[in-house]
């Protein structure tokens, strides 16, 4: 199989490109740090300015790692959803997962006034946002799955996902109406998405959850491939549908929930990355797609983050806007070129 060799060659290439983008991402920002110095700090070979070292190790490196995890995680969760629902339009965003997370965060941030004062102060810590977002996205996903086990039509499932999203949006509106300007601002800023707000200890939690998601995905590779043929064929191949579905959904909510919680609702990556990758690799085999999607997602996210930094200026754009600005044209271009998207 000469195919396998060319696949691994592209994978190695992707790893190199990813590393390049990590360094590029770190060297860009409001304070200019030369590329060579960045490599020096990262590899601990040269003595550089204390301030640069501080910026890199405590600000830019965590941000770059967050970008890698966000891009990979959302890309993988998009891939999982597209295979599970056998629908090229599925993704954490379309299925209402991000909306669920938003609802969770909105309940905590905007709804805090409904709780008593002491309880409220307890609620508004960084961790409570994380937990609220995870619970929110998990609940929406659970609802989607329960519905999808009764409704066989995948289009109907997507529409139901969109309905959940609009219900969440409506509840957020109601909560916003009763909230103070300060709370609203806090929520809006969260919804812009941000990769740079994570301290090392938060990053470790994100890495842990990401790792759990990856683990769950890896043990699902075999059933995922069988699921390409549909539920009936998969179960005829001995796949335990209930168990596999549950693990896949669990993995997705680990990814989507934790990422949305720490970095805000990041649009389009989950939908666009799997398609970009499938165009590059032209296969549906998850053993190849999984690492490929993870790397492509990381690259795209690092790229978007570098753009949002607006190099040479002191402004940064909301990351969520940049991913949509980059992602939407990509999907349109894909559809025009390929005419058909595959699961």
């Amino acid at each position: 199989m000469e195919n396998k060799k060319s696949y691994s060659l592209i994978l190695v290439l992707l790893i190199v490109v990813t590393l390049f983008f990590v360094f590029l991402n770190i060297s860009l920002g409001s304070v200019h740090i030369p590329f060579s110095e960045v490599i020096g700090v990262m590899l601990d070979t040269t003595e550089v300015k204390q301030s640069w070292e501080y910026i890199i190790l405590n600000y830019r490196l965590p941000k770059a790692i967050t970008a890698v995890i966000v891009g990979s995680g959302l890309g993988i969760s998009g891939l999982l959803m597209q295979t599970l629902f056998r629908n090229p339009l599925a993704g954490p965003y379309v299925l209402g997962l991000s909306s669920g997370a938003s609802l969770g965060v909105a309940t905590v941030v905007l709804g805090a006034s409904f709780f008593s004062a002491t309880f409220a102060s307890l609620l508004i810590s960084q961790w409570s946002l994380v937990i609220a977002a995870s619970i929110g996205s998990f609940l929406v996903l659970l609802a989607v799955v329960i519905v999808s086990s009764r409704v066989k039509d995948t289009m109907a499932i997507l529409i139901i996902g969109l309905m959940f999203a609009s219900v969440s949006a409506a509840i957020v509106s109601v909560l916003s109406y009763f909230s103070s300007a300060e709370q609203l601002q806090r929520y809006i800023f969260w919804s812009f998405g941000s990769l740079g707000n994570l301290a090392w200890e938060e990053l470790f939690v994100l890495i842990l959850l990401f790792g759990l998601g990856v683990l769950a995905t890896i043990i699902s590779i075999k059933p995922l491939n069988a699921l390409l043929l549909g539920d009936n064929y998969a179960s005829s191949l001995g796949v335990n549908l209930k168990k596999s579905r549950f693990i896949i959904i669990l993995a997705t909510s680990f990814f989507a929930g934790s990422i949305t919680a720490f970095a805000g609702p990041i649009a389009f990556i989950g939908l666009a990355v799997p398609h970009l990758t499938k165009l590059l690799f032209n296969t549906s085999n998850h053993k190849i797609l999984l690492p490929a999607v993870a790397l492509s997602g990381a690259i795209l996210m690092l790229f978007c983050d570098s753009v949002s930094q607006l190099p040479m200026s002191e402004y940064t754009l909301p990351i969520n806007a940049v991913t949509s600005l980059v992602g939407a044209p990509v999907v349109i271009w894909l559809l025009v070129r390929k005419k058909k998207l595959f699961v």
């Binding site: 056998r86 390409l228 064929y233 191949l237 796949v239 499938k278 549906s284 595959f342």
Partner: peptide, 30 residues
């Protein structure tokens, strides 16, 4: 089994599709 389910939306090659028939015999990662 050979079912009436439509599978034309996948990007699998014929070779890969037929090899999926070996799933009950392959290891945990296929």
């Amino acid at each position: 089994v050979v079912l009436t389910d439509n599978i034309s939306h996948t990007n699998l090659s014929v070779q890969e599709l037929i090899a999926l028939g070996r799933q009950p015999y392959t290891n945990w990662i296929g």
